[in-house]
């Protein structure tokens, strides 16, 4: 499994985490290169469907991150998002989908180091879990 390079998709908000990730770069901190960042206006816009699309398109792991509570640019987008994640995670778990593949975090614009750590930890976790083949194969199952 050592040569497995996990594909990680990060859904982040524009105002905090994206800026935080930018800081990681401008501070020349190194972190795992397996992550593809997708920027959204707000965590409130990160619908669970997007996460499913990422898995279906080959992601092995997902990061969802935005502003800390009370710091949302739109004041409550992250609070709304948090509720949905609570429910979505229970549903995934109930369906037998390993929730360790989806990592939720708050990373502010000042937390460049936290972003690097988050990505590294997630990459390590996903490396341990291995490729998400089960999910990636689903599209082919049931087609005759």
């Amino acid at each position: 499994m050592s040569d497995f390079n996990p594909k990680i998709v990060a859904f982040v908000c524009n105002w905090c985490t994206y800026a935080g990730a930018d800081l990681t770069g401008t501070s020349r901190m190194k972190y795992s290169p397996q992550v593809s960042i997708i920027r959204f206006p707000c965590t409130g816009r990160i619908d669970f469907m997007l996460l499913l699309k990422a898995f279906a398109s080959g992601a092995d792991g997902i990061i969802v991150s935005g502003c800390h509570p009370n710091d949302c640019h739109y004041s409550s987008g992250n609070f709304h998002a948090r509720r949905r994640w609570i429910v979505f995670r229970s549903l995934l778990d109930f369906l037998g989908i390993d929730v360790r593949r989806v990592r939720f975090s708050w990373v502010s614009a000042a937390e460049g180091a936290k972003w690097a750590q988050l990505v590294n930890e997630t990459a390590e976790q996903i490396r341990l879990l291995g490729p998400f083949k089960r999910y990636h194969q689903l599209r082919g199952l049931g087609v005759e």
């Binding site: 499913l52 049931g142 087609v143």
Partner: peptide, 18 residues
Amino acid sequence: PVPAHDLGNLEWNIMRAM
């Protein structure tokens, strides 16, 4: 996905429940 393959079915059922 429109087709009732395993991916379409899983996503549909997750969406409906959510």
